[in-house]
Design a protein around this nucleic acid. Sequence first.
DNA 1: AATTTATTTGCAATCGATTGCAGGTAAGGT
DNA 2: ACCTTACCTGCAATCGATTGCAAATAAATT
Lengths: 342, 342
Amino acid sequence: MSDRLETTIHDIAKKLNISASTVSRALKNNPVISEATRKLINKTAEEMGYRPNTLAANFRTKRTNTIGVIVPLIHRHFFSSVISGIEEVAYKKGFTVTISQSNDLLEKESKIAQTLFANRVDGVIISIAMETTNFDHLQLFPAKNIPIVFFDRVVDEIDAHKIVVDDFGGAYRATRHLAEMGSKRIAHIGGPMNLNIYKNRQAGYLKALADSGLPTDEMLVINNNLTREQGIEAVQKLLNLPEKPDAIFCANDTTAQSVIFHLIKTGYKVPDDIAVVGFSNEPFSEMVTPSISTVRQPGFLIGIKSADLLIEQILNKQKEIEFQTIVMPTDLIIRESSARQK
Amino acid sequence: MSDRLETTIHDIAKKLNISASTVSRALKNNPVISEATRKLINKTAEEMGYRPNTLAANFRTKRTNTIGVIVPLIHRHFFSSVISGIEEVAYKKGFTVTISQSNDLLEKESKIAQTLFANRVDGVIISIAMETTNFDHLQLFPAKNIPIVFFDRVVDEIDAHKIVVDDFGGAYRATRHLAEMGSKRIAHIGGPMNLNIYKNRQAGYLKALADSGLPTDEMLVINNNLTREQGIEAVQKLLNLPEKPDAIFCANDTTAQSVIFHLIKTGYKVPDDIAVVGFSNEPFSEMVTPSISTVRQPGFLIGIKSADLLIEQILNKQKEIEFQTIVMPTDLIIRESSARQK
DNA sequence: AATTTATTTGCAATCGATTGCAGGTAAGGT
DNA sequence: ACCTTACCTGCAATCGATTGCAAATAAATT
């Protein structure tokens, strides 16, 4: 009804015949205010239906208590787990979280970054878009001393805390597992090489081949954007090789699923003819038939860690910080798509 | 030059020997400023590295150009589609979107609402949590004349624009389809009756039974929270009935999937022994085997419509608005889980 | 009783952009 | 020349909370 009548600290001050500064301090639990006055002020504020004007406070303090989060796609299970972790920490420490999705597009990511910047977020947590190879839009933040934390898809070119998962180890174990299942020609469908995560997964794959005494074959490695469609194209290419693969390690579950789909459709048995392992442990991976072996990433923990590191920086802006790159463990989940009876 | 700080409109004004008001107007493309001065001001602003202080503007205008979105779970495909729709519109009209998830918990939803309120969002778009039966936390907004738009899981008790999908029609068509496939005893696993969407789906189911000349049987209707676990419990109960069902219409895809999983595990053939239809068209529903027949909801369109209606209210605050409830169409997707050879 | 110390509170400037109203200027009309 | 009108621009108040510094009061010490 009467929304022109917001109570301010001045109204409270006037009513109690004290100054606005005292009211402000009391409401903020500033220890310099005596217990008695604080109680009185809180009671009166309550009675008068006072609600603090966050906008005024933000303006004055130049802080918004807001963390901006940019992820490629919020509906990816991994990312929504990370977001949940971030929210968990942020709420506890009194920060609000603004989530945006880049849809893996550089242009959208850039616009989001600008918006967050203009809205003066106190810090940013980001996993960059697949397309992103230029980082000017992210330089905005360091330039104004606004902390950034990168996770998963990190950027070498910017100095900041980075949380990555052990892509190398996950890929290594996945590939070793395929070798242990008796596979001799293990193919790899990987992502774009501008993203470290895919570089590392590929490196893990190659190392595992070497350690298993298997030769590497360029023809068995295909890089694309890991969509459903490209997964099918890739597997078709692999099946057309003179020497077909007997196992495929895919850098994400979507590709693994489309690969399996195509293999079964064209008459191959999974895992007996060709075993498949994916990456990320998307929820569907255990629901499909055959269920997909995959590598689990600790999304929730990554979110917690990212938010912790970010908030620490926000609260200690002056301090010189030693940036660190934290590697979170991954683990292999063996399911039907790779579990051969030996 | 005191410009280790941020450039303000006053700095620009001083440099050009004009007033801050003119600068402000020029930067806002206020038509009252002549073309010449506007160009000069924009150029100078650019040169001086001016960036508008959104916080100051927000404070002054009491507007944040921010829309708060509250959904149960962002990783549900339906909700992330809606969010994409909202973002699409919001971005175009210069609004920022803050997304939060309630995890289907009343308490979290309530905290989020308070945070959004304290942060002075200009409007809210929400689909309420499964638990929510009390709406005090949402009354905050109407009380301060902050518009809300409800979608999908709407609330009768608050007067506002509401966008719902045609749950009744979708359920009706799903059930009719099961009847046409020859099912005589069609069960229903539904959600909590405090949510309209589940009430309507159940009503559609019942009407379809009646129109198909099938008797209704209380024993064939089970209501729970539609989780995986509860889906399995429910189907166990149904299989223990003296007269088992030959089809099950589930109010979401998660339940449908767990039901199918359990049926196959216990030796039933889907769809031949028991046909199953879900609801929402989650991406996994077409990837699992058998793929799940389901009801598609136009999430993206709902997001667009919600944002349109909300922003219209934000921009025309004074106007009396006739609140409307918009019903969006649904359609049935027939897949393997219900496609019997007749 | 005088002085020091500790404890509370108030003053007043500030943050930067916005906007109603008044004042100024140039162009057009008589 | 004088007066309107239309068009630009400036003045100055304002939004509400925060905070460094000074001052007032109370308590403790000599």
